[in-house]
Design a protein around this nucleic acid. Structure first.
Lengths: 212, 212
DNA sequence: TAGATTGTTAATCGATTAACAATC
DNA sequence: TAGATTGTTAATCGATTAACAATC
C-alpha cells in the first residue's frame, strides 16, 4: 500500500507516536484534526506532519483536515497492526519476564506463543500464562509453530548460537535486547535493537552537561 | 571539558556504542586502534568516527591512531561515568522490577538509592536488595537524600502528580518509561524517554514491508 | 464563492562523507 | 625521511521547514 517503499527511518519512527496521539484524540471524541492543531499537541511542525503522512498517501482533505479515526486506521495498517506475527521470547530473566508481562503484544501486532530459557531452574516455570520451555525444544517448536519473530532477552554470549538456530528455523525478525550484533552476521534479518544501557548513558551525558 | 557544548544528539547517541566497543577491545588486549579499523568493526565510516571524537578534542595521534585505554577513559568522562548520580525508581511493577534488577547502574554513572510504589501490596517488599517505600514518603526521602534522577516505570496517569513532586524536590533528570510528556510541562527537565512499544511497532513496520 | 487546509515543490538546515594538509 | 593516520575543511547528501498552488 506504500506510495514509496523507501520511507526514511526518521519518518517510520514517528509513526507509532502519531498512532498514540490519534488514539488519544479518538478516545476524547475528536473526530477531525488539522495538521496545524496536531502539530501543536505533538510539538512538531505542521509541515513535517503533512510531509510524513504524504509518504504513504493523501489521507487528508484540503480545506478540512484529517479524519482522526480514518488516519488512525491507516497508520495502524502501515505499521502492520492489522495482523498478528507469531513471536517467541528467549531468556526469561528479569528483563525477559518484564517484557513478557509488561508489553501488550496483541495491540502491537504480535502474538507471543512461547517462552524459552537455558536454565534448568526456570524451565517448567510459568510467566505470562505460559510454561517456560528448554532451548533444547526450540527447533522442534519452531518447525511446528513457525514463529516469525524472536525477542532476545539473553546475554550477548548466548546470542550467536541461538540466532543461528532461529534464522535456520525461518525466524525473520528480532527484537534484540542483547548486545549481539545480529546484522553483522545476518544482513537480511530484520532487527530492532533496544539498548537500555545506552539510553541511560545518554541521560547521564545530558545531566553531566547541565551540571557544568 | 567539552570543546563545543553544542554537540548534536546523533553524536551523543553514538558515544555509548563507542564506549562498549572500546571496552571490548580493551578486554581483548588491543591497546591502540585506527579510525579505519574501528570503523570496520563498528560498521560506520572512519570519517564519522574522527568527526565524532573531534567534537570533544583531539584524542588521537597523527600517523598512529588512538590509544584504546585512553579513549575509553575520555569517552567515559564525557558521558559522566566518573561520578554516581543518586537515583530513585518509581513504580515497581514488572517493568520497574526488571529495570531495577537488570540494569547495572553503577557502571553507568548512577546509584539507585530508593524504590517507591503506590500500591500497599508492594510497599514493604524487597527488590534489588531494597525495601519498597510508599510514595507518601517520597518528599521526606528526597529532602533527606537529594536524588537527582528518577526512573519512571509508572502508568501515564500517575506520572504528572509524581513528576510535579519530584521537580519540586529538586530532581533534575528523568529516565521515562511512561508515556507522559515531561518536557511539555517542565521544559527545563532533562529527559530520556524509553518507549518500548514504539520500538516494537517499528519492528512490525519493517517486518510488514519485507513480507510484501 | 471565500476561507481553510491539504499536497507538493522549493529553500534551508544539519549531518555525513570525502578529501587533504598537518604531523607524528 | 617516508608512511601512516589524524584533525579539519569542503562537498555531498538527506531531512526538515517554508511557501504556495490546488482544491475541498
Amino acid at each position: 500500500m506504500a506510495k514509496d517503499s523507501n520511507i526514511s527511518l526518521p519518518v517510520i519512527r514517528r509513526l507509532p507516536r502519531y498512532y498514540r496521539f490519534l488514539y488519544d484524540l479518538k478516545e476524547n471524541g475528536v473526530t477531525r484534526i488539522s495538521s496545524r492543531e496536531l502539530s501543536q499537541r505533538m510539538r512538531l511542525t505542521a509541515s513535517q506532519i503533512r510531509q510524513d503522512l504524504n509518504c504513504f498517501g493523501g489521507f487528508g482533505q484540503q480545506g478540512y483536515g484529517y479524519m482522526v479515526d480514518q488516519l488512525y486506521e491507516e497508520i495502524g495498517r502501515i505499521l502492520g497492526m492489522d495482523r498478528l506475527t507469531k513471536t517467541i521470547l528467549l531468556g526469561v530473566g528479569n528483563l525477559g519476564t518484564a517484557v513478557g508481562n509488561h508489553i501488550d503484544f496483541k495491540s502491537r501486532g504480535f502474538h507471543l506463543i512461547g517462552l524459552f530459557d537455558d536454565s534448568p531452574d526456570l524451565v517448567g516455570d510459568t510467566r505470562a500464562d505460559m510454561t517456560i520451555r528448554s532451548t533444547d525444544e526450540l527447533e522442534a517448536f519452531c518447525q511446528k509453530e513457525k514463529p516469525e519473530m524472536a525477542i532476545l532477552c539473553i546475554p550477548k554470549e548466548a546470542a550467536p548460537r541461538l540466532v543461528e538456530k532461529l534464522v535456520a528455523c525461518g525466524v525473520k525478525g528480532f527484537w534484540n535486547f542483547s548486545h549481539y550484533d545480529i546484522l553483522h552476521d545476518y544482513p537480511d534479518a530484520i532487527v530492532e535493537n533496544v539498548h537500555m544501557g545506552d539510553s541511560l548513558m545518554t541521560l547521564s551525558y545530558h545531566m553531566t552537561q547541565k551540571g557544568e
